[in-house]
Design a protein around this nucleic acid. Structure first.
Lengths: 193, 193, 193, 193
DNA sequence: CGATAAACGAGACGGTACGTCTGGTCTTGTG
DNA sequence: CACAAGACCAGACGTACCGTCTCGTTTATCG
């Protein structure tokens, strides 16, 4: 009965990424990306896209998730605090580049589309949160991080500045900066004089 | 000769806000807001808008800045750390409401418009940064905050989670949460065992 | 594969005529006629018009040609000179009315649009020329019109005054006048004294 | 009381002609000519044009009349029929060139502007008619043209083909053609067999 | 193995908005 | 008070996409 064409699916996801984060040539902003453009680029009819995705953002989220494979793994053999410190740094490095710009635009698109925001959180963000939660819990077990804080509170303090710099485009966004940030967050800001 | 009409300017800014953050009725998302709509609502011709603003975002930034008067002042008579704690909380409270949604959308629009991002940073963000910098410096002088940290580093740790929760729409965004956040940030996450 | 909608086509042509040569109400000049107006009147989107016609004039020419069915036939049973005389008169009568005004405006629009002029000549004018050529040739065969003149020369002399009065809006434009004109043209202006 | 500035008037008329029938460069069609453009080109404000002319066509008519000085005089010393024949030819020659295109466009503009048409007839056409009337009357007196025809009837037959070819852009428009035309018109089309 | 139901490309359709242009009016100095 | 400068409302321009909707035309099971 004519199953969904994998060929079309691939062409659509690939075309989307290649428009929005091309190997070469000018990238097109997520806002200016249109379904018509994707269809044209993918050699696919609009109908096919509309049949399988509810909106432009949905296509982009799918494309992004396939593309942005978790390239920021953490090291299980290091002490949790070390692994966490390195994870933070690698996340900062990745988000400091073109994928970061893309992520920022995805988050931006989600601001006016609650459905998309839900999708984004379910499929990207919760996954990320889980990664950090695991590490933080381990660090708490290993006794390097206060266990009177919820893992979410710790995650907020550690990861927030990365997204902050990503979205406000203000200040550095790289591994070195992230390392220093981690140290400060752990140490606290209170004067010890 | 023929000076700019203050009447038109007001009508445009007012119409913009009333579309995007109405006292009553359905708000229209910033993305779906169109210059035509603003013109219609303001009883003004498109030309007049295009004459004075380069883009939709520019109008919105102007409107937002006029509307979002600094309603999060800090108290000069309190010790700086108290004032900072309260300021954080009041910012969190405000951004937890409809103005926060608006701000989030403005930031979102800026993701694909470098001009707008610059404008936003120059006119909103730097101003905000200055407020917090002032408070943080005073706290460092008063000896409550480490003075081996730059004020920007402190600001990153303290304010980032607010924008994080604002833009990811994940987790609480209110004064109580902010108070606790402040305490944690000051104290640090390292276990003291 | 989604054929052209005859319904839309009809609506567009009808709306155009009804705006430009309404049964009742005020006619709108061809110059002031806009594609937006036609679309509005026809209950059709602008896109649909632009998809099928290159310009306003093109729509009008199509509309005019459908509307202005050859209502000035010639009689095959009469002697050619009689038929020609009557044809001239009926043309003059028609052009003396509202269709004439319309035709004049179409010709006017063509003055600054070579494409349209070509279209107009190909689809209207050559057709008309052929009608008169046929009659003139027959009259030459029947020996009533000089056969040392090309049919075009005869047509120029016979039909030109009609278009002249039509476009300069100077002088009469009706059957009686045309009859007299025909007689004069045949007889010549030279004094026979 | 600040009288009308002759300087402005000249600049406006000159600019108009130089846009519409430039010595060099691309001519702009009368339809695309705008008051704004004239004002810009003339270094004059729109207000000034609107103060003195009711419409674009009015400006153009004025410009045209100043520019198109009667360069088709007739010779008083020749027999009237000769003078008429030559006059016809010189008119055809002039209208066969760029001034003819301009005139055609003026007449075109008048099709949807009765005021302009009246102005055009009063200031251009009646003047022309008078010229030909004078000649025709003389020819009737001299016995070369039938005096049972009104001068208008003769003028119609003689001049109409020129305007016909001018406005339909169909067929030749030059002196030689006009000469032949004249002869035919005088002789008549009826077969003399 | 042939019917049949889905997925597909193609693309027309009614819409909305874009950013630009011109029209014509009105206002505010300047000379 | 004529004029320049130019702001203003109005509205059309032609284009790009939107999301919906036929259309045939594959294509892959299922009866």
């Amino acid at each position: 009965m004519a199953l969904r064409s994998e060929e079309s699916r691939r062409a659509i996801l690939d075309a989307t990424i290649s428009l929005v984060n091309p190997e070469e040539g000018e990238a097109i902003s997520l806002q200016k990306l249109s379904i018509e453009r994707i269809a044209r680029e993918a050699g696919v009819s609009k109908t096919t896209i509309y049949r399988w995705w509810p909106s432009k953002v949905a296509v982009v989220i799918d494309s992004f998730l396939e593309y942005h494979v978790a390239r920021t793994p953490f090291n299980d053999e290091l002490p949790a605090s070390e692994a966490l410190r390195d994870h933070l740094a690698s996340v900062a490095d990745v988000y400091g580049g073109s994928e970061g710009r893309l992520l920022a635009q995805v988050i931006a698109e989600c601001q006016h589309d609650p459905e998309a925001m839900k999708e984004f959180k379910d499929r990207f963000w919760l996954n990320r949160l889980e990664t950090s939660t695991t590490l933080i819990r381990r660090a708490q077990d290993e006794g390097t991080i206060r266990d009177d804080l919820s893992s979410r509170e710790v995650a907020d303090i550690l990861y927030a500045p990365i997204y902050f710099h990503l979205l406000l485009q203000s200040g550095p966004l790289d591994g070195e900066w992230a390392h220093r940030l981690f140290d400060t967050a752990l140490e606290g800001c209170r004067s010890k004089k």
